[in-house]
């Protein structure tokens, strides 16, 4: 199968036949996923406010340490690799759920969870090192904005990990019920959205530091 075939949706020739007024409500999985998509977009708007605060305050170091003295590019590359790979394994998790394959679901969930934990470990180590070196959130406006932005993303990852663990417990006890499957698909959307926010973080905060 060629790549182009795989990437284009199969045609739906009869999609325009029924008027919108006669189609009735969309099935529950579609309504739930669309609602969660709206939540994710509003969550990204929340992050945009934190990004704006960081962009405005990033130069206000009050004589304290600036970005290049504090950040370690190698660490950031490893963190990015973890989160990116976990987003990919989360996609494979979605496919395992669609195929109702319990073993593959557990496997990809475990890999996703482990990569998320490694990411958080690197981030918390970095935070601990900065606070111990006198560059805590109270040092300057730049560091307040930094800890708020990156910390909020880390908090989201923590919540995502708790969610993933809960969902695996539900798969184990309840099986692939429609309710459980809907929640799992919402989780995968959440996890991909965190990766999109991280692209902004590593570009603006870490690579844009000067």
């Amino acid at each position: 199968m060629s790549l182009v075939d795989a990437l284009t949706e199969p045609g739906t020739p009869d999609s325009g036949d029924t008027p919108i007024s006669e189609r009735g409500p969309a099935p529950l999985p579609i309504v739930v996923a669309f609602g969660f998509w709206l939540f994710l977009l509003s969550d990204i708007v929340l992050f945009s406010a934190l990004f704006a605060a960081y962009a405005v305050l990033s130069g206000q170091t009050d004589g304290g340490p600036a970005g290049p003295q504090l950040f370690n590019r190698t660490n950031v590359l490893i963190e990015t690799g973890c989160l990116l790979t976990s987003s990919f394994t989360c996609g494979l998790l979605t496919l395992s759920i669609e195929a109702r394959n319990r073993l593959a679901t557990y496997l990809w969930a475990a890999v996703t969870f482990a990569l998320g934990v490694v990411f958080l470990a690197f981030e918390l180590t970095e935070f601990g090192r900065m606070v111990a070196g006198g560059a805590g959130p109270t040092r300057s406006a730049f560091l307040s904005a930094f800890f708020t932005l990156v910390g909020t993303h880390g908090l989201h990852v923590t919540v995502g990990l708790a969610w993933l663990a809960t969902m695996m417990a539900q798969v184990a006890t309840l099986g692939f019920r429609p309710m459980v499957v809907r929640r799992l698909l919402c989780f995968s959307l959440f996890w991909h959205a965190l990766d999109i926010v991280w692209i902004g973080v590593f570009t603006i905060v870490y690579l844009g530091a000067h």
């Binding site: 199968m1 790549l3 739906t12 996609g91």
Partner: peptide, 21 residues
């Protein structure tokens, strides 16, 4: 169901989906 929008993140499965990811 072609009369409704599809869910975000959905619509791909099997080897096509794996190739996409």
């Amino acid at each position: 169901d072609s009369s409704h929008d599809k869910a975000p993140g959905g619509g791909q499965r099997g080897s096509r989906g794996a190739l996409m990811y």
